[in-house]
Design a binder for these strands. Structure first.
Length: 481
DNA sequence: TGAAATGTTGGGGCG
DNA sequence: ACGCCCCAACATTTC
């Protein structure tokens, strides 16, 4: 009798069937397995999935449903609140156990704790696993026992641990032959897709789901990891991995990525420098989770309290909107913001530039940027997004000093020397000669008129780089007073 | 995973 | 030949 009661696998941001410890454990139990996803945006408070993430989630759930079906496991879709949905499911199907992979956001930790206690009280086995990280946040501390706040020592320590115990990715579980009948909601009824069909650019760019994640990984390993160290700085090259949304939704695990990199690019003498630099980015993700876990208020509060009295400016709605929509008149900034809107992602160097412009030149609180990114990025991840914004704003761990203010013209000329990236995403600048592509306002007026730029922000940007820089530096000096 | 201002050096033009 | 100046190139400092 007890062997016939199902083992539930609760899916969250681990939407894959390979190397999924919770699923592996449930399948190893030998009885019926039932998978469930609970859509409960309200449980996540202000950080419920944004528009781009919901689009991704819809398609990733569709992919997971068919991947699990292949294994004979039904995926139930439920609506939250999470705890009551799971508890009532457990009693309805008389579950014997629930397994899940741990999350590290403050809200999820709270839900998990209470769920675990309530399941135990009902006599249901509850077990959680590490399915998302190479190093869980509590696994390493500094010499004095505190959490790390600086990347490099974190990285060193984390690497020694991972090298000692790399862990092998688990294969796909064997097919489940039991039948579990428990009807859930349809995917459509979750209403994850946008009502206005703006997601065409996303669909053209991405293939959500585990298969898409692995083809992206393979393509990266074969085509672009070579030269990554240099190439990753050039946004018009496709040198970055593009794995971030797949990692954010857990369609591939960092352990699988690490193992694949080692399989391709470890010559026995260690990783190639290109591969090593890529792996370093995986550890930035680990560092972000370490910080989020140990400083759970950082999604809204400065990690560095010196900035709590900093004189951020009240956003001008027109300027904020121009930044969001890529109409500031600064070519590479606008290109980045339009790339984000169109494709749900933005090259990392350009993310730093647009964030520098918002937090330093405009001196708007980094949360305005974090919220916009949250809504528009397909790789929106609370740990990474928080850490990234606090890093650029200078309020975070191991952060860029406040006085490091990027100049979008200089950066554009250095990292997009031909202007290919700008031309791709800002078509009205496509015909501008390369000399002027990053500062079209210097073109002679007759040329501007001929190119149709008269009256656009490209002949008079909304942000004066020189004066806003000076003002930002002055504001920094009085920080904390 | 800065930029701009300031300081230093050394080659070459030129009286 | 020499000193002087200019200035590009590079280094250092400051924010």
């Amino acid at each position: 009798m007890s062997t016939r009661s199902p083992h539930i696998v609760w899916f969250r941001r681990d939407l894959r069937v390979r190397d999924n410890p919770a699923l592996t454990a449930a399948c190893a139990d030998g009885g019926p397995v039932l998978a469930v996803y609970v859509h409960s945006p309200r449980d996540a408070g202000p950080w419920g999935p944004g528009g781009a993430s919901r689009w991704w989630l819809h398609h990733s759930l569709a992919a997971l449903t068919s991947d699990l079906n292949r294994l004979g496991i039904p995926l139930l879709l439920l609506r939250g609140p999470t705890r009551s949905a799971l508890l009532s499911l457990c009693s309805r199907v008389q579950a014997r156990a629930v397994s899940w992979n741990r999350r590290y956001e403050p809200g999820s930790i709270e839900v998990d704790k209470r769920l675990k206690a309530q399941l135990a009280a009902q006599g249901v086995v509850a077990q959680s696993f590490n399915g998302s990280l190479l190093i869980e946040p509590w696994q390493i501390t500094t010499g004095v026992g505190s959490p790390y706040r600086v990347f490099t020592p974190f990285w060193r320590k984390a690497q020694t641990l991972v090298q000692a115990e790399p862990g092998l990715p688990a294969p796909e579980p064997r097919r489940n032959h039991f039948v579990v009948d428990a009807p859930g909601l349809t995917l459509e009824s979750l209403k994850l897709l946008p009502r206005i069909p703006w997601a065409g650019g996303l669909a053209a760019t991405w293939q959500p789901g585990e298969a898409g994640a692995h083809s992206r990984l393979e393509r990266f390993l074969v085509e672009s990891i070579q030269g990554y160290r240099e190439g990753r700085d050039y946004p018009q090259k496709q040198s970055t991995s593009g794995l971030s949304p797949h990692l954010a939704f857990g369609e591939v695990s960092p352990r699988q990525v690490l193992a694949a990199v080692h399989a391709h690019w470890n010559s026995g003498m260690g990783l190639t420098p290109d591969a090593d630099f890529f792996v370093r980015e995986l550890f930035w993700r680990e560092f972000s989770y370490h910080l989020l876990f140990h400083f759970p208020n950082t999604p809204t509060e400065n990690l560095n309290a010196d900035f709590d009295t900093f004189a951020w400016r009240q956003p001008d709605p027109v300027l904020l909107k121009a930044w969001q929509q890529g109409r500031t008149g600064l070519p590479i900034v606008d290109a980045g913001m339009r790339e984000l809107w169109k494709t749900g992602t933005m090259h990392n160097r350009v993310r730093m530039l647009v964030a520098s412009v918002l937090t330093k030149n405009l001196r708007y609180h980094w949360l305005h940027g974090a919220r916009w990114f949250w809504d528009t990025l397909v790789d929106a991840d609370l740990a990474n997004n928080t850490q990234g914004w606090q890093w650029t704003a200078g309020t975070g761990a191991d952060a860029a000093p406040y006085f490091r203010i990027f100049n979008p013209v200089t950066q554009g000329e250095r990292f997009d020397p031909e202007g290919g990236y700008v031309r791709r995403f800002v078509p009205e600048l496509a015909e501008v000669p390369t000399r002027f592509i990053h500062q079209p306002w210097l073109l002679p007026p007759a040329e501007q008129a001929r190119l149709g730029l008269a009256g656009t922000p490209y002949v008079r940007p909304l942000i004066d780089l020189a004066s806003s820089r000076t003002e930002a530096l002055a504001a920094y000096k009085t920080r904390g007073d």
